[in-house]
Design a binder for these strands. Structure first.
Lengths: 200, 200, 200, 200
DNA sequence: CATGAATGAGAGTTCATTCAT
DNA sequence: GATGAATGAACTCTCATTCAT
């Protein structure tokens, strides 16, 4: 079975190289910057080769999209063992924002960009989204159990917190923070996460 | 002088038709969807005609951008006479979100999209952005004077509130609310604006 | 009759303004630089107005062409009263080159450029050219009478002298003299005109 | 390795086909006539294909330019073994003119046309031009050694001879010889080259 | 007389995609 | 599995010209 495995591994590596090149280009100027030619140049293969690994341009974006959600969820799970519910919620927000900082391209693709080929996407989104959203609501309800969020509907709280961190992440990812000096960004973000706790 | 006036009016109408067509197309799939050809088709004129009213493609975006900011600011000013600082702040947030709902395309253009030809833009942005941000900070400081935002830095509060409403608006504009049923959107939003007040 | 005359005069002035603007633009980058729009901008009239004075773009070039030949011939006549045949011939060459220096655009148009709408042109060219060429041959034959050009066919001599000065003028007009330092141009030209005398 | 060679050959052939089509079109009406679309039609390929062989339109002109200068210099070298300095100089002139006759399009491109994208060009021009000009001066100085060009500055002589042949070539290439009947052209040219010898 | 609005044609260039080799 | 050649459609923009007003 060694041969087949090696082939599989090679196939995976190639796909990863393509995806990684696409991500890199995406950072440049958004979608338009990700052309098949440029991906090909980047991985030092011919254009046609890409089509051996992906059906078309859209499939590349779709795959990136999926990978993004996986990494995103993994990170969220990682903080689920924090005992203190308040702390956990704040961590949750931090995880969210940190993900946007670490993978602005994934974040952009997942939560901001309008992607061509929406239909295919939405189904997957739906599942990924729900999974994540449920986790948030779980954390909120546990915080509620610990005395926070008095008189607050869980749905409202979830939506609020989500909007809050998404707002921060979006401003960061799409470079709309010019209004604040660069060195002030970090304290502002941590300050904001502290501020929202007042509402818990 | 009726002739000149009629001509002026026609010129204005044409510019508006072009801008409106551009906005409409923009909603479809973002910038790439707004091509000169498609605008022309839309207004049922030849491509060259557009160039009689706008220097080039960028000028169209720039104009839309400007119009958006004007309307946006006007709306913000309109609620400045609300006496109660708490109420005014909530109104402020509502105005923000309502703007996004009423003019999703403007909102997209102004706060989400990556626009080609950044240099020209940024200067105008800077001014428009500051004007708006200062208004927010003013309202917060007045609320502070009324006893709210104890122990909270104004900058942090401003950034937090901005992020919050921008998060809501972005999720709406870029259609990332699939997670919540459509009819739940409105109560969620008002609920969220109520929720954030707990942090004041 | 005053009215008609004034109208005629105005018409002429307008035509001249257009032609002069065209010439000016031509200097920029050759023909492509002479667009109807740019001419219009230059004379501060609308594009359509030009069509009231010239049938189309070609007619403008044709007219310039004609004007050039007229000025050219006038200058040639002006040196016909030089008594010494040798001196007169050298003057003739000088006049030729000086014309190219003073009116590079005319020269270009008349002797270098490929003009669209050749058919119309050639007839006029033929006449203008002959007139000039005959003058040259006249001067040569008189020099011959004075002992120069022994054993030289007049046709050959005329062609030779014409080629000679045209060569100098062309190199100058089309900027092909980079090979010699700018300050050396003038002495070279006068030197060349002196040199060719050795062949007389 | 036959495959690679065949591919190389095909690539070369394609480039040549494109260049040759460009030259052909150029003859029609100068630069403006050489459009990418027309080249494509001519070689019966799609427009995009040309861009697989040349970076852009300018590169095509630049390449033609270069090829022209190469052929030109090769021809000049070919007559350097003529012993008699007088004869060699006359041959030199003939070579010059013959080149213009054989490759009017090259000649036009090299010595007459105003080319867009001058910057790139001029450096190459400078070298090619100097190389040629030096050869001319060498030949003159050797003729001088053999007793010709008494009391004539070499620079002046070089400039004069260059102008002379360039004049002839230009008149021919740009079709300004209508004044003389076609069958008279050849004798006139040889006559002129004989005539100029009188000045040596 | 003069204009400004409009157009169709055409320019150079880039792209995603296909396919024979 | 990989390539390079090829294409057709699309892009932004400019032009000469026409014509109702």
């Amino acid at each position: 079975m060694g041969i087949k495995e090696r082939k599989d591994r090679q196939k995976t590596e190639m796909r990863e190289a393509i995806l990684s090149a696409a991500l890199k280009l995406f950072s440049g100027d958004g979608f338009d910057n990700v052309t098949m030619r440029r991906i090909a140049e980047n991985i030092e293969y011919s254009v046609g080769t890409i089509y051996l690994y992906f059906k078309d341009r859209n499939e590349i974006f779709f795959e990136l999209h999926k990978l993004g959600f996986e990494e995103f969820y993994k990170r969220q799970l990682a903080i689920q063992d924090v005992k203190d519910p308040l702390k956990r919620l704040t961590e949750h927000g931090l995880v969210y924002i940190q993900f946007a900082i670490d993978y602005p391209l994934y974040y952009d693709l997942m939560f901001i960009s309008r992607i061509p080929g929406k239909t295919i996407k939405s189904q997957h989104d739906w599942k990924s989204g729900h999974r994540t959203y449920d986790l948030l609501k779980l954390n909120i309800s546990q915080a509620k159990g610990a005395g926070y969020f008095k008189n607050v509907d869980i749905e409202v709280a979830a939506f609020s917190l989500w909007s809050f961190v998404h707002g921060i992440a979006s401003l960061y990812v799409r470079d709309r923070m010019m209004i604040v000096p660069p060195e002030a960004v970090k304290p502002l973000v941590t300050g904001a996460l502290k501020f929202i706790e007042r509402a818990y």
